[in-house]
């Protein structure tokens, strides 16, 4: 059952992105920004976590899930360390994601050359 929910919710979030691309001519960069920011706000409001509990990877793999991770991280750090947590929580929570993206992108750039379409 968890695969079905992951598929439906994950696919559904992507459809929202697709409608935005086709209807508003937003570029992919803007979509990425919008989804992370919205995910972070929803996470802060405590609305996104129930979706994660329900759909698992269907809610964590799309970028709003990344935003939710930021919100969760920052609230956790504020709980632990007070106001200073607002400055440290975001990067702590997203450290693994951003660092793996940098590392694997760098390695890919070492190995591969640009390809024509």
């Amino acid at each position: 059952m968890d695969y079905l929910y992951a598929f439906l919710v994950g696919g559904g979030i992507c459809v929202i992105g697709q409608i935005l691309i086709d209807k508003t001519k937003m570029t992919s960069a803007r979509i990425l920004v919008l989804f992370v920011v919205v995910g972070c706000i929803l996470g802060g409001l405590g609305i996104y976590q129930p979706l994660v509990d329900f759909a698992g990877a269907g809610a964590t793999v799309p970028l709003p899930g990344f935003g939710n991770t930021l919100a969760k991280g920052v609230m956790y750090e504020v709980d632990q360390n007070g106001l200073i947590g607002a400055l440290t929580g975001g990067f702590k929570a997203s450290a693994a994601g951003i660092t793996s993206a940098i590392v694997f992108a760098f390695l890919a750039a070492l190995v591969f050359n640009p390809k024509e379409k």
Binding site: C14, V15, G17, Q18, I21, S28, L32, V61, A109, P114
Partner: peptide
């Protein structure tokens, strides 16, 4: 991405692609 549009932009894999593609280019 050409086929799937937002289907491959919105997941975390799309974020990875958006970092790796300029690095290579």
């Amino acid at each position: 991405g050409k086929f799937a549009g937002a289907g491959s932009i919105v997941p975390i894999t799309g974020f990875s692609n958006s970092v790796a593609s300029p690095a290579i280019e």
